[in-house]
């Protein structure tokens, strides 16, 4: 099976300088409550990797975080290109754990 080089680079700490984003990649900040996670991704990279990495970071079960950009729910197969993200400004995704209600 061929090695697949991931085109997502998790960046720590969250305050890392903008100028360190590699050429051709865009910095995404994921905000989850008080926590922020920064990633450098290609505009054509599916968000699936960002979602999975964030879920691992916070020890959340797969699929239990919901990600939004400008109020729109993001799907794992979407990309920055597809959602027409405004790349001239910081790109922030909001993440939220699934909530439950019944009683």
């Amino acid at each position: 099976m061929p090695d697949v080089k991931p085109d997502i680079k998790e960046r720590k700490p969250a305050t890392q300088d903008e100028s360190e984003v590699p050429d051709g990649k865009v910095q995404i900040t994921v905000i989850l409550g008080e926590q922020t996670f920064k990633y450098a991704v290609k505009p054509t990279t599916a968000f699936k990797k960002v979602f999975e990495t964030t879920e691992k970071q916070v020890a959340a079960s797969p699929g239990t975080l919901r990600f939004h950009y400008n109020g729109q729910r993001l799907r794992p197969q979407q990309t920055l290109e597809e959602i027409e993200a405004e790349l001239d400004e910081p790109v922030e995704f909001h993440a939220q754990l699934e909530q439950i209600g019944g009683a």
């Binding site: 919901r66 729910r73 939220q96 699934e98 909530q99 439950i100 209600g101 019944g102």
Partner: peptide
């Protein structure tokens, strides 16, 4: 009860 989550409300 799994159908009581945010995604289901959506």
């Amino acid at each position: 009860p799994n159908c009581l989550a945010t995604t289901d409300m959506d």
